[in-house]
Design a protein around this nucleic acid. Structure first.
Lengths: 247, 247
DNA sequence: CGACGTGTTGATCTCTCTCAATTAGAGTGG
DNA sequence: CCACTCTAATTGAGAGAGATCAACACGTCG
């Protein structure tokens, strides 16, 4: 992916993202070091890596995860365009989680002190960082509720609805219903995100599909019965995703 | 609890907390509206409450939680002295989780715009808010790993070690080993925090106690065999995550 | 063409849940 | 002072959701 100046950031044109002043964008641009690409299934940040850079996800999907020493893995959340990577590393000295690319990803790399500079020079943006961090925590909260208290079928329904909504908010083309949204997860990713075994994930997925609730094909996800899925997931109304600051 | 001026805040004397300049403390003080007390087992923030105040936990224990419509409850994390309450509410318009007092708690109440003022006027403090938010997320990450991938026994061992460390860091008196730390949770709280049933929590707790790993008595927790507990939890002796080979 | 990753399915097995009942302590009212 | 109630902890028995084990199918790729 060709390097993009922040003032021409493709994310900025989406309705989802906040608008910023020219000064703010200039500041961001001055803190941006470069733009890099990681291939699918490679590590962006190694688990335990002490002092990684600060990234912003420009395009593609990734995920945060932790593992136990015997290899059991828990995916903490999925990262989509606009998400931060590495804020926690800057905060807690010891990194605790790893980040892996799910698809090929394009990342903006920022200076080590970018977070601090942002807070110091542009309070609005600093506030945005706090906002984004709190928002990411809210997503993890949701997953914890799923893993702790929902059945396998409910968990999967919840994940599908949530990911669909996030992906749809980033999708520029129309006709989501017919074509669905990009969905690069394997069943193993779903299992590891929901605290299930691979086999049981497969069987549950097949059951939902047999009920006609969804369809996963060619790396795309279509929700055929959002109402039924939402009911399974115990989600209230069609809460649309809130606008988010883009740093 | 008697209102305390921020410059004489009891938390400030603890080694755990950062020192701030007089100006910063003055700013905090100017943003603080009052100090309130909630009794044990009462709601500090109702689940779904739209625009609650921003609190800081001055003394006592509380917890954040979410519930499904049929009553299943998941405790997201426990809140101890020094923790924020309500940052997420300020960020996402719709509150998503509730907060309940576990013991009687003393809270400092801040102005609605305190978070913004902090960022605007004192970048260092604004940065601190981001730090705390990221830190809280790291705690939820740990719990998600537990609930998703650890067995009941491992989960409980992990929770005991983690809570012990947090409580011990706030304990001013010595002789922690002999007296243990305050531990106001009931078995139902443990169950709801770990995604387990009450009955199984009880049986597992009894098993750990029979093995001589810990003792809960008179609302206090003593760890009798930190090594064994940490091994169960897949943590090193000091409770830090074990180093892992970088692939 | 064999190796590998991903998905699929059937057959057990077991950890954890649910149901049920008992004990102990704290608080309350007569 | 004693029944009565409520909460928290405890224990046993049976049931079940989901884990583990084992094959197999299919497409991609070196």
């Amino acid at each position: 992916m060709k390097p993009v100046p922040c003032r021409a950031c493709p994310l900025r044109s989406m309705p989802l993202f906040m608008t910023h002043s020219d000064e703010e964008i200039g500041l961001i641009e001055s803190l941006k070091k470069e733009q890099v690409v990681f291939r699918a299934d490679t590590a962006v940040i190694h688990e335990g890596q002490a002092d990684g850079p600060l990234y912003t996800l420009l395009a593609g999907w990734a995920f945060r995860y932790k593992t136990l020493s015997d290899g059991r893995r828990q995916i903490l959340n999925f990262l989509l365009a606009g998400d931060f990577i590495g804020v926690q590393q800057k905060m807690t000295e010891a990194t605790v989680h790893g980040v892996q690319a799910l698809t090929d990803v394009a990342l903006c790399v920022f200076r080590r002190d970018a977070l601090w500079e942002l807070h110091r020079t542009a309070p609005t943006l600093g506030f945005g960082v706090t906002w984004l961090t709190a928002h990411e925590e809210a997503i993890v909260d949701d997953t914890l509720l799923s893993v702790g208290r929902r059945s396998a079928m409910e968990r999967i329904a919840t994940l599908l609805v949530m990911l669909y909504k996030r992906a749809a908010a980033l999708d520029t083309e129309g006709d989501l219903v017919a074509r669905g949204v990009p969905f690069p997860l394997t069943q193993l990713h779903i299992a590891d995100a929901l605290g299930l075994s691979l086999v049981h994930t497969n069987k549950t997925l097949r059951k939902l599909e047999a009920l006609g609730l969804h369809r996963i094909e060619d790396g795309r996800l279509r929700l055929l019965d959002v109402r039924a899925l939402s009911r399974l997931a115990d989600l209230y109304g069609d809460g649309r995703p809130s606008p988010r600051p883009l740093i």
